[in-house]
Design a protein around this nucleic acid. Structure first.
Lengths: 232, 232
DNA sequence: GGAATAGTGTCTCTCAGACACTATTGG
DNA sequence: CCAATAGTGTCTGAGAGACACTATTCC
């Protein structure tokens, strides 16, 4: 039997990242059913007959956050297929997707009744999540860190309009580093198509008001944002 | 029915790349059965009950090339799950893996009777492959190009011992560029853990003999190999 | 010696990083 | 005025790229 070709059940799991209160957070749901009942897990769902996995992920994302997939930069993290990762039969194999969200006003209200909440990734990394979701989360965070280096997705963490300081906070939070303000400012505004000035300014609580920007057209960030020295 | 959760069949497909006669080549097999009988396709196989997909890929790789997976830098390219990608029922979803092989002495002799052969990727890209294998091949080649930039996998294209010129040929072939010999030499020998001199020399047909190297311990290449301007 | 390939020296330009400095707001 | 944040100027050092030059082999 172990040598026979096998049918499996496929799921798409989501690692939805955002920045809240200065920390990188991930959306977790509490499992209401076995296996792993009561344990926190990544949101996800089963593949339907007429879907590709990307659509399954987009559908789940809309259910969990109310946001359209296009805006959230859905990217494949990888496939997790260890035979013992899920005790159910037939085997459950999952494909993980990374989504990057701005700080959402509501913690989340899914269409189903699952208790969903934002959890700092530092905490989540210490908690034992259901299945192999610890590993998936770690892989997704690492992917997000790499993406910040070479793409313009950092703007997806911000709202439609943001200041350079907002954007810098994204890099500092996700990478756990402190960046030089003047150099970051130049780098970002010089990069072609990364940010576009709106002409507006946002008054800060104190100090000089900052110019507002929108995300530019470019997807790739050239030259890449350096990530030489790291922090906690 | 389309809304119901579905069981699928999983396969692992392999994009095995090597360099032959100065060109980047991929291993293709001719399909003996429907669907796509007679069409060229990527080698692959079905997931077995006791395996993870990585093991399925490693097993197929050993069957097709006789090489152990450890040596060949097996990496996940992605999952391909479009509902119409395979006409069979139940649905077939595949996970593609990239493998990088040195120029093998024998074109290939699989344990099964399939006609396998190395095909230049430029040709393969023009041919219509079975299923969505054109797309998978393109994605895998792009991944390989990126990997050369940031990792030391280029040595996997070479045999156990190689010259700096051999390694340079790998970059030039995969990227389709011409690199400056002196600068490449310095870059590679200076990078920490990329190549290790064996102390031996290989006599070339003409000119000064080149020093031989082995692959170093480092997996990541810092600083990365630049890929600023491109060629054909 | 000449042809061919391996490898070194050295200059220039770009860009990351450090950091002094100026600009604009509210108290 | 001061405090605080936004943004500019400028220097330095590392590394990419260009390319002149030296080194070692076979004929």
């Amino acid at each position: 039997m172990s040598r026979a070709r096998q049918t499996v059940t496929l799921t798409a799991d989501l690692v939805i990242l955002t920045i809240r209160d200065g920390g990188l957070c991930v959306l977790l749901v509490e499992r209401k059913n076995d296996p792993f009942r009561g344990r926190m897990a990544l949101p996800g769902g089963f593949l339907r007959g007429d879907e590709a996995l990307e659509q399954t992920a987009a559908r789940e994302l809309a259910e969990e956050t109310g946001l359209a997939a296009e805006a959230l930069n859905l990217r494949q993290v990888g496939v997790y297929s260890a035979p013992d990762r899920d005790p159910r039969r037939p085997r459950v194999v999952t494909c993980a997707f990374l989504a990057i969200a701005p700080d959402l006003p509501v913690p989340v209200a899914g269409s189903d009744a699952r208790a969903a909440r934002w959890s700092p990734v530092t905490e989540a990394a210490e908690t034992a999540l259901a299945f192999d979701h610890d590993r998936i989360l770690a892989d997704a965070v690492e992917l997000a860190r790499t993406l910040l280096q070479f793409s313009t997705v950092a703007t997806a963490f911000c709202g439609p309009e943001f200041t350079i300081a907002d954007l810098r906070e994204v890099y500092e939070t996700v990478w756990g580093v402190v960046l030089d303000k003047p150099n970051f400012h130049r780098k970002v505004t010089d990069a072609d198509g990364f940010v576009v000035p709106t002409g507006e300014k946002r008054a800060s609580l104190t100090g000089r008001p900052a110019a507002l920007y929108r995300a530019g057209e470019a997807a790739e960030l050239v030259p890449p944002m350096m990530r030489s020295r790291f922090g906690a």
